[in-house]
Each structure stands twice: as structure tokens, then as C-alpha cells.
């Protein structure tokens, strides 16, 4: 475990889904970390954490991919992952995957340094934010892996809760899975479809104009349903934002626990600093 006395630099593990579908979420996360005074290292050789194969039962195939990933973080600094799902894979399943393997020690070492993005902002940096922009109604969807595997559901709530111009609405069956589940959505499309349709309905019913989430898998799933229902049934379509994108657009970094190189902020109020 790293001591984290002065996390002036971190590794960033972008995840394969963000890489190819939602790069803006990754760019936003990196930028936000930089605004908080953190130097970000992005190993270009990263590909995928291996979870799709792991969850499909193809453990050898997953392990060989994971083996390449754990070699990417030689420095004893935090590894920030903007996804509860991939974070959960690296933190909780790498130790299982490498049990009794030659690289077990390295896998454990990496696992011990994994932080989900919102967890890093809240627990490590103790970041203070001020909202900016117009009043907005939002709904938060926390991924099951962020909630149950990583135990960080409260972090995204805490971050959004700091922004005084944002009203959070709670959807019914908030803790229920959106039906993505990686290959589940493909292997059991009928069940998955039923789940995502219900989830999209519940969020739409809150009246929120933006759905915020910390996992792009859920986002791809739910926003896909929003868009489909908008196109085919002319239903209202809330925007979908990864928490990093949302915070970058809608907040200023006031300070962190370490207060290293935090840029001056201009349009914040006194009150917000106490939020």
C-alpha cells in the first residue's frame, strides 16, 4: 500500500469503454485531477482490465491481458480508475485471478493502489468544489460495482451534493441494476432490455434533465435506451454524463486536503467553501 502522504502524481487507467466510446469522460477526469494539482500519468500501453473475459469464464485469457496491465504501474502511486466496474476488477478480482501465479505479488500490489475516481476525489483529496452554471435537475445512477463491490456509492452523491446549483432527484428502485452487466446484455438480451427500459423510465420520471453516473457501461446502456425511446416514442431524453464530465463543466475546484497548485478560482462564493 502506498502511503499517499503527498499524492502529487497518479496513474490514470482510462478503461477500454471510455477509450473508444466516451473519451471525453477520460479527458475530463484527467483535467479535473490536473486542476486539483495532480500530475497525471497515462501509460499508453494500457488496453483493457480483462473483465469481459473474466466475467465470461475465460480466466486464462483474462489473466494474460491483466498481466500486461499490472506491469504498467511501476511507481508506488495511486492508480485512478474512472469506473467502479473496472476498478472493482483490478482491486478485487486481480488477487483472485493471480492467486498462486508468479505475478501474484505484483497483482496484489496493484490492487492495493486502485482508487475509483470519485473515491479518490473524496477520500484521498478531500476535494472541495463550487458549482457553476444554471440551476439543473439531475438524477444519479450509481453502478452496482461502485455500490457493492467498491462501496463508493456515497462519493458521487457527496461530490454532486457540494454543488449548490444542482438539485438531485431520486429515481425509484435506485439501487436496482440497469441491466448492462457486460456480456449479460448480449447473452440475455431480453432480460437486459427489460431492465434498462425500467431504469430509463424511472430516471425520466424524476424530471431530471441530466443523468450522472460513475460508470460508462451503465451510461452506454441507459443513454442508449433514452435515445432509442426518444427516436421511436418521442419520449423526453435526459442527457447522460460521466461524473468527471459533469464536474468539469459544472464546478470549480476550490481546494483539496493537500492544496497543491490549485489554480485560483474566480466566480465562487464564500458560502460554497463551507459546503
Amino acid at each position: 500500500m502506498t502511503t499517499l502522504l503527498q499524492p502529487d502524481s497518479v496513474y490514470f487507467y482510462g478503461t477500454c469503454l471510455i477509450d473508444s466510446v466516451y473519451p471525453n469522460a477520460g479527458v475530463s477526469a484527467v483535467e479535473l485531477l490536473q486542476r486539483a494539482g495532480i500530475r497525471v500519468i497515462y501509460p499508453q500501453a494500457q488496453t483493457c482490465c480483462g473483465q469481459p473475459a473474466w466475467n465470461s469464464g475465460y480466466r486464462d485469457e483474462a489473466r494474460e491481458v491483466a498481466r500486461k496491465q499490472i506491469a504498467l504501474f511501476p511507481k508506488d502511486i495511486p492508480i485512478v480508475v474512472p469506473s467502479g466496474s473496472c476498478g472493482g476488477m483490478m482491486k478485487h478480482h486481480y488477487p483472485e485471478l493471480f492467486k498462486g501465479e508468479p505475478d501474484e505479488a505484483m497483482a496484489l500490489q496493484v490492487a492495493g493502489r486502485i482508487y475509483e475516481f470519485t473515491e479518490f476525489l473524496v477520500d484521498v483529496l478531500e476535494i472541495k468544489l463550487a458549482g457553476k452554471g444554471v440551476k439543473t435537475d439531475v438524477a444519479i445512477h450509481t453502478s452496482c460495482s461502485a455500490r457493492r463491490e467498491m462501496g463508493v456509492a456515497d462519493k458521487i452523491e457527496q461530490l454532486v451534493g457540494q454543488l449548490e446549483n444542482i438539485t438531485v432527484h431520486e429515481q425509484h428502485h435506485k439501487k436496482e441494476c440497469c441491466g448492462f452487466g457486460g456480456t449479460f446484455a448480449i447473452k440475455e438480451p431480453e432480460i437486459s432490455a427489460s431492465m434498462v427500459t425500467d431504469k430509463a423510465d424511472a430516471i425520466r420520471e424524476t424530471g431530471a434533465s441530466v443523468m450522472i453516473t460513475q460508470d460508462c457501461g451503465c451510461m452506454m446502456n441507459i443513454s442508449g435506451a433514452f435515445e432509442y425511446e426518444n427516436q421511436h416514442h418521442a419520449l423526453r431524453m435526459p442527457q447522460s454524463k460521466h461524473i468527471a464530465e459533469f464536474l468539469l463543466e459544472r464546478s470549480e475546484v476550490l481546494c483539496t486536503k493537500y492544496d497543491i497548485n490549485v489554480p485560483e478560482t474566480s466566480d465562487t462564493t464564500e458560502d460554497a467553501t463551507h459546503g
Binding site: 482510462g14 477520460g26 479527458v27 497515462y42 448480449i186 431480453e190 427516436q231
Partner: peptide, 22 residues
């Protein structure tokens, strides 16, 4: 087809995160 029965297909980004961060 099963995915797109209730959802639109995932949008593929013009530039990957790798490319953008580089």
C-alpha cells in the same frame, strides 16, 4: 440486433482517449 431493439448502438468516438491524451 438484440441490443438495438431497445437502445441505440454505442457511439464510437472519432478519437480515442489514448489519442486525445497523447
Amino acid at each position: 440486433g438484440a441490443w438495438t431493439r431497445v437502445r441505440t448502438a454505442p457511439p464510437i468516438a472519432a478519437k480515442t482517449l489514448h489519442q486525445q491524451l497523447k
